[in-house]
């Protein structure tokens, strides 16, 4: 922070805010809120989008200025009557450009100003250490692994197993909820214990056949 910048920031600034409702070519409703200290830029947007009905220019403005200090924009998507997905500009660009949504119409729904008031720099105190209490937590993970075309699902406590050998070494971490599926169907093995034994037996056989604990997914599939 240099002195010049700090001095500049002691001045009041007024941020102009415009909100546009956009009917996308995909039929959905979007809402853009744009903010800028550049009144001329916003006036030009107003005129082109709203007065001249140039909805097609919306993305030109956003692409040219979004993410800069001159123009910030965010978009909300209306689905099921709920406004949601308040996003930042990068996200908005992803959503709007990669989906290739063309605005069908743009309507300005509100215009307002936000005054950013300076406060004394000293209003923010120097850093102070604050105590962090860490509580004990029983962690429960659910994993699915694939052996051939079969899928095994189990609940596991403790550190995430790194590989097949690690899983076998720490099989006591399996605490319950064991399931065994072929394709999308639960195969109905008799008893969970039997299914678990079956899984570990397969793993061991393959590991022995490969002669190493470093068996890859491909080798087991």
């Amino acid at each position: 922070m240099n002195g010049t910048r700090s001095q500049e920031r002691t001045q009041d600034r007024e941020m102009q805010i415009r909100t546009f409702s956009v009917q996308g070519a995909d039929g959905r409703l979007y809402e853009f809120t744009v903010r800028s200290e550049d009144a001329q830029l916003l006036a030009r947007m107003d005129r082109e989008l709203n007065v001249n009905n140039r909805a097609d220019l919306l993305f030109d403005y956003v692409q040219s200025y979004a993410g800069t200090r001159r123009l910030q924009a965010r978009v909300q998507e209306a689905e099921g009557g709920q406004w949601s997905a308040v996003t930042d500009t990068d996200y908005m660009r992803n959503r709007m450009f990669q989906r290739d949504i063309s605005p069908a119409s743009v309507t300005e729904v509100s215009a307002e100003a936000e005054v950013i008031t300076p406060s004394r720099t000293s209003a923010v105190a120097a850093a102070r250490p604050v105590r962090v209490e860490e509580g004990a937590e029983a962690e429960r993970h659910t994993y699915a692994i694939r052996i051939g075309n079969e899928r095994y699902v189990f609940d596991f406590e403790g550190e995430r197993p790194r590989d097949w050998a690690d899983l076998v070494a720490r099989q006591d971490g399996i605490v319950g909820g064991f399931g065994h599926y072929v394709g999308n169907s639960y195969v109905g093995v008799v008893g969970t214990e039997a299914a678990l034994d079956q899984m570990f037996q397969k793993i061991r056989e393959i590991m022995v056949a490969r002669g190493s604990g470093g068996v890859s997914i491909e080798q087991l599939s």
Binding site: I174, Y181, S185, Y186
Partner: peptide, 27 residues
């Protein structure tokens, strides 16, 4: 993540079972 030696440990009993409602059904 070096490969662990092949263990020969036995497993502790599993204390919970998967829901029987899923048995034999498409998931």
């Amino acid at each position: 993540a070096g490969a662990a030696a092949m263990p020969v440990t036995s497993r502790a009993p599993v204390t919970a079972v998967v829901s029987s409602s899923a048995q034999g059904q498409e998931t």
